[in-house]
Design a protein around this nucleic acid. Structure first.
Lengths: 219, 219
DNA sequence: GCCAGACAGTCAGGTGGCGTTCAGGAAGTG
DNA sequence: CACTTCCTGAACGCCACCTGACTGTCTGGC
């Protein structure tokens, strides 16, 4: 299992790295929210994430939401020093799947992570008859399957994560490119065309609709 | 099941020998690290190993790593007088699979050993028409057989363990090199080429596909 | 001690895939 | 009709990867 850990405290980071490796898992480490967004993308292959709520550059719950809108929907376990109920609930509200307070029992944390991971890697979106398979970098429909390049995959993931909703160009760019990247407006169109072509090539029943002046929507 | 035991204390050695034989297993005994290296090699047929961390001539964790790099990848259970968490973790980091503190409950130890043995090492798959033979470090297909070096074998095993899935470069590195090893990015490519060449040389029907920017996939 | 062979790892050069851009046309909007 | 936005096809260039050869280390045999 590949586990993404976002935690600023070096001691805890190292502890988790060793313990998880020991338990037979691979880890990807991030020490702040920005790095997490870069490393934990939809095509990162990550099965479960551990995110500290109190990060130096942002709130872990915001990080989680940003990842969600980038199409990443692996389960998230929040780490926090706070034990109050409303904080716990806020964590769940932000798309979290579990919650552990610091200081935590290592064994318990790992057990919970494995439980979350065992639920299986959810196909990113079976919505609208379109499956995204991060393990294979592929998009699948009842009628066939195509392989996508990393960027294509991230873009498509960002759109399919919100079926029937209009996803703004800006959002697509934020999901598919690292923060601060400068891309010509047109680049999105080019990729969109390639994705559409690939989907057509397998006779996909779903298509990407463009909402002029706003963005795109899956249908 | 054949169980290798490396332990300097004669009393514990005798205790384990009797108990394991009683439980229906065969044992191979070593008094120190040097002997363990000679007796527990990759071709020793040993299924599981019990290694004391506090050996007269060396640290059990070093012994374990030495055995690993000699191609021995049977599961290891560490025995130690230390109970502190960081020692436990260090044992895991050295390639251990389980850990029992002395004095131990005989029943529990045997149960854990049997669990390790049963789990086996990743049942190196017959997937996709490609057989991996850990004992001989060989890859076999309907059309022939080639011998692989230890590193080649570990890499190929990492890829074949997930047929049709993209295995990331860093996953391959994690599988083929000890933790913290620094290898040039290029090294993976070199080995990959050697593996592909060997597979071709026997006219293998399966081949390793590369997914640019992500990793490799068996096909 | 010396040599031969096997294996791990590195380096430099070439290639192609993928990300990116551009220009021209089509479609939507006022 | 003027203007904007998006589609379409083609082309470019970088970088990840491939490829072949080389170096260094270790082991076993004479």
């Amino acid at each position: 299992m590949i586990i993404g850990v976002c935690e600023d405290d070096p001691a805890i980071r190292r502890l988790l790295a060793e313990a998880l490796r020991f338990a037979g898992h691979e880890t990807v480490m991030a020490h702040d929210g920005g790095e997490a967004l870069r490393l934990f993308g939809a095509d990162s292959g990550i099965d479960v994430m551990v995110v500290d709520i109190g990060l130096p550059d942002s709130d872990g719950r915001d990080v989680c939401q940003a990842l969600r809108s980038a199409g990443q929907n692996a389960p998230v376990l929040f780490l926090t020093a706070l034990g109050a109920t409303h904080d716990r609930l806020a964590g769940f509200g932000a798309g979290g799947d579990d919650y552990v307070a610091k200081p935590f029992e290592l064994k318990e944390l790992i057990a919970r992570l494995e439980a979350l991971g065992r639920r299986g890697r959810p196909p990113l979106s079976t919505t609208a008859g379109l499956d995204l398979d991060p393990a294979r970098h592929a998009a699948r429909t009842p009628s066939g399957e195509v392989l996508l390049t990393p960027t294509e995959f991230r873009m498509l993931a960002a759109i399919t994560s919100r079926p029937d909703e209009v996803v703004r160009r800006r959002t697509v760019i934020a999901a598919a490119w690292p923060e601060g990247a400068v891309v010509a407006e047109n680049t999105v169109d080019s990729f969109m065309r390639r994705i559409r072509t690939k989907l057509e090539s397998i006779g996909s029943p779903v298509s990407i609709e463009t909402v002029r002046g706003v963005g795109f929507r899956i249908r």
